[in-house]
Design a protein around this nucleic acid. Structure first.
Length: 211
DNA sequence: TATGAGATTGGCT
DNA sequence: GCCAATCTCATAG
């Protein structure tokens, strides 16, 4: 892999052009698909980390599997922000997961970021994760958040501004996108609302989920 | 006030 | 393949 590249690439692949809010598709599943291949940058503690989004899941309005299904609560408030804001939650007493809020203010829907392809700050990610295997740095929502230093401090952050955590455009060919059922849920388990970059080595779960 | 389930991961069998 | 770790919320008593 990557053996044909020059020894010292002059620029990272992240172009850095911020994603404007008006570019984001208004419907949640469309946003989940659109986010594949876009970049996530965090100018965080210890330095900058960035990755290409390669796996997402959509949690729609009126979706029984969504945290917003029963209305706003203390935890899920950021799901009700206008599209393009971060919704970060703490799960299983151990991990954080990051979502991008979708649709209109007050709607209550979001896209879960499940995996990244690391682009910048890989050594910093490895330190935060306590792991050296690049493939294990950002494969899965909990690992992704830990590698990018995303926690409740980023909950509610505007991802379309010039803040520390932001969405950006990335150079390169458009990814071929696969679809499947969502992972790890029991309600609405048959709905096809997971999107991923075909062939990426950073897809979470088993090989069957990357066809 | 108590209890159980949950959009996960890592370690052990 | 199984299970512990351990926070937040919803539901029940």
């Amino acid at each position: 892999m990557e053996t044909g590249l020059p020894a010292d690439p002059p620029e990272p692949r992240v172009v850095g052009a911020a994603v404007a809010r008006r570019e984001l598709p208004v419907e949640t599943a469309a946003l989940a698909r659109w986010l594949i291949g876009k970049g996530l940058v965090h100018d965080g503690p210890g330095g900058l980390t960035a990755g290409r989004i390669v796996e997402t899941e959509a949690y729609l309005v009126g979706d029984a599997a969504s945290h917003a299904f029963k209305g706003p609560s203390g935890r899920n408030g950021s799901m009700f922000l206008e599209r393009g804001h971060a919704y970060v939650y703490f799960i299983y007493g151990t991990w954080f997961c990051m979502n991008v809020s979708s649709e209109a203010k007050g709607a209550g829907a979001a896209v879960l970021l499940r995996a990244l392809d690391p682009v910048a700050g890989i050594e910093l990610m490895a330190r935060r994760r306590g792991k050296s295997e690049t493939r294990d740095l950002t494969r899965g929502p909990g690992r992704l958040a830990q590698a990018m230093a995303i926690d409740l401090q980023q909950d509610g952050a505007d991802l379309c501004g010039d803040g520390a955590l932001r969405l950006v455009h990335v150079d390169g060919p458009l990814a071929e996108i696969g679809e499947s059922k969502r992972i790890g849920i029991t309600k609405e388990a048959d709905r096809v609302l997971r999107f991923y970059e075909r062939g990426s080595t950073f897809i979470s779960g088993t090989k069957k989920l990357n066809v």
